[in-house]
Computed example of a mutant assay.
Amino acid sequence: MLKEFKDFIAKGNVMDLAVGVIIGSAFTAIVKSFTADFINPILGIFTGQIGLSSFVITVGKAKFLVGSFINDLINFLIIAFVVFLIMRTYNRLAKRDTTPKDTKTDTLLGEIRDLLKDQQNNK
């Protein structure tokens, strides 16, 4: 069982997934910083508040953290857009590489096929 687990972990897909998760979490931290340190001050100019996270709606004893939700929504939209761009580029490159290229063997086999057809037609 330990050998099977080792083989499973050593497969490329699992390692690729691990790298993707690590890079994704680092990228998320960068996007959160971008939102908090760049976008929020710009929006604060228009809303009159330092940052959106301080925007709270209180109804009775309930507090709705609307600003925090908007920050998370902005983070999600930025990350989703970047992932979209990455996947679109990847799909375009993958589509380009899947076109089969004629090898010398393919060319020779095609010529042999054509010669055999000509021989059968001449009989």
Rank of each mutant, 00 (worst) to 15 (best):
A36M: 09
T89N: 09
K63G: 00
N40M: 05
G48S: 11
M15A: 01
A94G: 06
T47A: 06
Q49A: 09
F38N: 01
A18G: 07
Q120D: 07
L109V: 05
A10G: 00
K117A: 02
L17C: 02
K6I: 12
M15G: 01
Y90N: 06
N121A: 06
L43V: 13
G20K: 04
T28V: 10
A10M: 14
M1H: 13
G24L: 02
N122T: 06
A18M: 14
S53K: 14
E111L: 07
G20N: 09
T103A: 06
D72S: 14
A26G: 14
D102G: 11
E111C: 01
G60L: 08
L77T: 03
K123P: 12
V56A: 00
V21A: 10
V82G: 02
F27G: 03
V83C: 01
E111T: 06
L85C: 11
M87D: 09
R96H: 11
T105M: 08
Q119S: 12
L65Y: 15
D114S: 06
K95F: 00
V82N: 03
D37Q: 11
I86N: 02
P41M: 01
M15E: 01
A26K: 04
Q49M: 09
I22L: 13
G48I: 03
A62L: 12
R92N: 13
V83N: 00
R88T: 06
N13L: 15
S54Y: 08
T103F: 04
M87T: 08
Q120S: 08
D72F: 14
A18R: 02
G12M: 04
F38V: 09
S53G: 00
T99V: 15
D118L: 14
T58R: 15
V14C: 02
Q119R: 13
F46I: 11
D102P: 10
N13C: 03
F69S: 10
I57K: 02
R96M: 08
N91S: 14
A18S: 09
I30V: 15
K63P: 00
K104C: 07
V59L: 15
L65C: 00
F84K: 10
I112V: 11
A26C: 10
G24D: 04
N13E: 13
I23L: 03
F8D: 01
I70N: 02
D72G: 12
